[in-house]
Design a binder for these strands. Sequence first.
DNA 1: AAAGGTTATGTAACCGGTTACGGTTACTTG
DNA 2: CAAGTAACCGTAACCGGTTACATAACCTTT
Lengths: 336, 336
Amino acid sequence: MGEATIRDVARRAEVSVASVSRALNGLNNVRGETRERILAAAAELGYVPHAGARSLSLARAHAIGVVLPDLHGEFFSECVRGMDREASRRGYLLLLSNMHDDSEQAAVALRAMRGRVDGLLVMAPHIPPESLERALPAALPAVLINAPGDFASRPSLRLDNRAGARAMVEHLLAGGYRHLVHIAGPEGNVDAQERARGFRDALAELAPDMPVRIIAGDFNEEAGEAAARQILASDQPCDAIFAANDMMAIGCLHALRQAGKRVPEDFAVAGFDDVPLARYLALTTIQVRIAEIGARAVSRLVDMLEGKGPGAPVELHQPELIARATTAARPGVANG
Amino acid sequence: MGEATIRDVARRAEVSVASVSRALNGLNNVRGETRERILAAAAELGYVPHAGARSLSLARAHAIGVVLPDLHGEFFSECVRGMDREASRRGYLLLLSNMHDDSEQAAVALRAMRGRVDGLLVMAPHIPPESLERALPAALPAVLINAPGDFASRPSLRLDNRAGARAMVEHLLAGGYRHLVHIAGPEGNVDAQERARGFRDALAELAPDMPVRIIAGDFNEEAGEAAARQILASDQPCDAIFAANDMMAIGCLHALRQAGKRVPEDFAVAGFDDVPLARYLALTTIQVRIAEIGARAVSRLVDMLEGKGPGAPVELHQPELIARATTAARPGVANG
DNA sequence: AAAGGTTATGTAACCGGTTACGGTTACTTG
DNA sequence: CAAGTAACCGTAACCGGTTACATAACCTTT
């Protein structure tokens, strides 16, 4: 009924389980003829080793746990794809668990990983550092991705959101735009916070006399549309809109066009993330190579697991500005 | 150093491991005071049960293995998202393994699942049924998604590609288009085959005197562009192009517009899948609710695992036609 | 007070692998 | 030919849980 075990193979090959284990794991202290007999028996029985038992015995699961929040489409898939690529390259499987926003559920998800994985990859831009640290099994190596705060205790990867926002501000100013508005992301989200901060700081430094105007948003397309309407209805001057992510920028684009405005002549529009759609809509944005970050996270974790040391505690990934038509320079502006 | 084990908890609470196990699993045959002592000890030690050991002992891992091919972005994430939603609802974790195209590697990926999962979800539109069956551990329940051929031995979910293609042909004919061309997907891919077959059959039935014209493609945007160029260069009449997926349809759209053609006036264009981009480009397409299929697959597998019977051996999911601007009816055609 | 029943707890086997350790056997070597 | 060595192989302990079964403690009941 059940699958064949190593003892079945041993019985059939008329050797001990130890020899079967040795033969199947390629140890060299098995006589050629014996090895043949064992391999034959294993093949005849269709024997497949029981990975669970193996990892219990070895204290090594060759699997890494991935705990992600509810990301929207692109992000999720790209991140997991990058992780999977690297993981399979290095011989690990991925155990996935979506963590819903609740911090309590997150703890449960993390605990469920104990004893099935060798390490953890955690992306939790919305969980406060202390409760995250409390929820992490202490002895399990972990790499944090885009964690809020400076996590001294765990190595982490971070996207340099501030640098990205700053690059965008520079780009818009260089293009001759003089009245910038930022549409922010959800309040609790670190990425959103850092992008807004980057916008604010860059403006303070590069154009100190320009008023800093930030409209609240939530990363959804509708928020972008609402922001556009608000801008159109307002009497404050505005000639460039920088949304904290692409979806809001896209909503914004739609609303502006619907209102008969031209982009970039009347308003420049820019986003953040470089989702596939951005290219089709010629939207200027900041490219976030999330797959690369995922792969890098796996790579660092595996290095830790294999004793190659944790490396830099915080690794900052630089995003790249992709200039497209929605922020073309104003006529008469000499561009650098 | 290592994490606390159940024996550590037992020692600290001055009881046997059996009692600890009982107390932590909520069995009712533990005296109240003893239970308190055990819970306290566990909390003090930060004890987290070792899921690997637990599942070895119970012969139940509460995890399900997911083996997917290299899908492109949208598809992958949507599918996994649907699976994850349902899996976490029913108390299972997902163990992910991307299967690369190689059939040999697929077998390895499947074997690696033995002993860590209770069942398997396999999506392998490119692996021949026999080698798949050979690679699947016999005693492991599995649900196949979009498997080629009729798999008598395993329950499976299938997208009704033929019905989708047929609906599209009907839609185009009703719109007044008279010269349909299909851009096919990769040869070995079942979905692509069935879509082409649906196109062919529908045409044979609904417009028997119309020549069936199919151009080879590979699901990539470039193939769509190439097909468009081929159509433009050819002297055979064509007024509607139905690509086997959205990405090719999009490539096609670009190439046509670049050549100065209007859509849908000169050519109608339609795709298959309804990727998010399709809505923005107003591309008519067949909506595939892949997340739903993923969720359903999990649900069926869990039903099997919990002894609720496998249900229908093959479950066919009906896709829905989404009519948009790229296939607007020709003027003068009474529609509906 | 002894017999019988109930309930709480402990002991040890088991899940399916790996491996330290010790025993055989065959081969060198003086 | 005896002793030493290397190569091969088997026994049993172990990884960290669960649980059948045995035992002990406590109540009833007559």
